[in-house]
Write a protein that binds this DNA or RNA. Structure first.
Lengths: 230, 230
DNA sequence: TGTACATCAGTGAACGCGCGTTCACTGATGTAC
DNA sequence: TGTACATCAGTGAACGCGCGTTCACTGATGTAC
């Protein structure tokens, strides 16, 4: 970039020509948040984690590349932070969607629909979450005999799965699901949703009606009785 | 690499220290095949398409990097060839698995099991196939009203889906499936298989019994009547 | 049967690029005295 | 109330690396005559 006077200035992204104001003392952590947000935006617009380079992130924010090292150990740590944040959003969206509903089938379906909607709306973010090694590799934890839930502390991905497992168990308890193993059936539902979400985004195909497909997946895999289907 | 005489030689991969013999006249195409095979091996062992660089492929084969340009326009063309070949293998494995079986339910299940086995055995190859834009973006084509199959010429991915759709339709025709829309239900089965295949490989999780899960997915989504389940 | 030559299969040096990472550094700001 | 100074937030030049791609080139081989 050359100014009218002929001097050279550092290039800056077109969308934010205003010089960045340095954070006040004690507010240094804010740049860390901004790095994650920017990395997420780059991933969403480029479609590949490869585009999330230290230099690209720094360029977008308008900082020196080296400033990132105060906040993240390396490039991978940024991507991990992006995936972690996304997992939290996805889980929140899924849990919130069914929160207010009385009918267990409606609650299950609403959560599943929100899950799929999130994945379809943020395909590259969703793909990152399930890339090996991302958020600790997804929901770990162990389900002990007869228990419906995982116990993995605060892991948002485990929380998300637990919400699903509980929703299936609630249907079973209410007699509207024929499930005798809500944990196993929740896993099957999850697989169906994951397949739906990832396939729909990745290929051109004469997909059947979206909502009918979603209902077929959820009702069949959660063994919802016909009479109880919404 | 330095010889005892102190001269320098081009480095060569440890696993094939024998100098490559130049193909005979007219056999130049063989190197193209070797490039695809090597790229597939690099992908499988590294786990990421990023590792499939022109230089890495050339290094493994023991050729000059520039020799690749006689066979492929660029790096992306190599990956596309890898994905195409893998799609053909996957389709063949799925179709062959059920070929000899009389019972339509057994045939459907065998094909689905082979599909999932292939995906689990070659997770990175499978992931590449479904990366946006790979094999033309997967099975395109159009299903016209009431028809069970896609019509996309020789596309191996379309052939694979058609095999699945035909298997579901056969179950329906034999009265062992309650499906009234074999195309839509085949799509649901495909989603379930895809979710199963990709989730299982990507995360640590207390997965329920594999075969029970697979059967639940296939039977439920293809609406196989209980009495006919194998 | 011999030979000139076009073709084919592949080479090797060189290029510019964007990258991650290192290092020594700067200048504003809050705080202790 | 004033001021010295430690700390914090961020800088900027430089490095070496592996990459894709270009270009002019080589030497063996089959074929036309």
């Amino acid at each position: 970039v050359t100014t009218p006077t002929g001097t050279t200035q550092p290039s800056r992204q077109a969308s934010s020509p205003i010089a960045r104001v340095r954070n006040r003392r004690g507010q240094g952590g804010k740049l860390g948040e901004e790095i994650v947000t920017t990395a997420t935006a780059i991933l969403a617009s480029s479609g590949t984690p490869d585009a999330v380079t230290l230099r690209a992130v720094a360029r977008h924010i308008g900082i020196a590349t080296t400033s990132i090292y105060s906040h993240f150990a390396d490039r991978e740590a940024i991507l991990k932070a992006v995936a972690d944040r996304a997992f939290t959003s996805l889980t929140a969206a899924s849990l919130d969607a069914g929160a207010g509903l009385e009918d267990p089938v409606a609650r299950l379906l609403a959560g599943c629909r929100a899950y799929v909607d999130y994945a379809v709306d943020h395909p590259h973010l969703y793909a990152l979450m399930f890339t090996a090694g991302s958020p600790g590799g997804g929901p770990p934890g162990s389900a002990t005999g007869g228990d419906v839930e995982l116990h993995a502390g605060e892991d948002p991905s485990a929380a998300g799965f637990n919400g699903l497992a509980r929703a299936v168990a609630a249907c079973s308890a209410a007699g509207v699901s024929a499930s005798t193993d809500p944990f196993a059936d929740a896993v099957a539902v999850w697989m169906g949703l994951h397949g739906y979400a990832t396939l729909r985004g990745s290929m051109t195909f004469p997909w059947p009606d979206q909502d009918l497909t979603l209902k077929h997946l959820v009702y069949s895999l959660a063994r919802i009785r016909e009479a109880a289907q919404v």
